[in-house]
Design a protein around this nucleic acid. Structure first.
Lengths: 118, 118
DNA sequence: CAATCATATGCCCATATCGGAATGCGTCAA
DNA sequence: TTGACGCATTCCGATATGGGCATATGATTG
């Protein structure tokens, strides 16, 4: 508990939860609506325990919620947790629009603009 | 090599690279411009080797590029790799609005059910 | 209750990962 | 050339992770 944690717990950080490709696939699938575990496992070509484990991680970070439906347990999307991810990445938007060669000029432009504003 | 990989290599997947909070902090810092390793380490309260390791990961996924400047090595942002992240998360945009409504309806259902039970 | 279907958990293994400490290595200055 | 500086790399230890497999738990039906 005290020494060298390898990484922020995947169960407490959305960024970490979506670092797993299969978990991202699950989320994409769930955009089409609620699904039982077995169906998800089948469509994604993974075992049922595998799907359950991934779903557990997604549930613990709040990206998914589950609902009992008779014998089954339906998993549904709760995408609110993805909003911070979207916004964080969006904070870099202006940087991927400017090519590197232009970035320097861009910074110069900003400076110039500021000068002109004063 | 063949059996049970724990996770997609952090060095080959942007999602995985940004799963580390400190690496995200580095990227944020670099929006202000190029920085040498020691300065990054200092501002983020990590050791120099620690910073170097994180920078290596970021470099290998292409989120950062480096340039020699005399004794120093300046790291700069290359945010293009964050665009897929932004777009992927953006694919859920309509869902994190709808989620509220669904959740609300769900809560209403619960209340209604309880009332009927009493 | 017993049998059955759906899902969750526990265990084991191989590997990845992070942090710390020591060290290698290239570059600049005296 | 010899230090000193800046950074990268390597080794180590502790831990997290994902997959496979067996099994436990839950709920439904007969």
């Amino acid at each position: 508990m005290i020494a060298g944690m390898a990484r922020a717990a995947t169960t407490s950080d959305v960024f970490n939860a979506i670092a797993e490709p299969q978990r991202r696939e699950i989320l994409v699938l769930l955009r089409a609506g609620e699904r039982p575990v077995t169906e998800l496992a089948q469509e994604l070509g993974m075992t049922q325990p595998g799907a359950s484990k991934h779903l557990r991680v997604l549930r613990e970070v709040g990206l998914v919620r589950d609902r009992k439906a008779g014998k089954q347990r339906l998993y549904g999307l709760d995408a609110r947790g993805l909003r911070p991810v979207h916004e964080w990445a969006g904070g870099f938007e202006r940087f991927w629009n400017e090519s590197f060669d232009r970035l320097d000029a861009y910074v110069q432009d900003l400076k110039q603009t500021r000068l002109e504003e004063n």
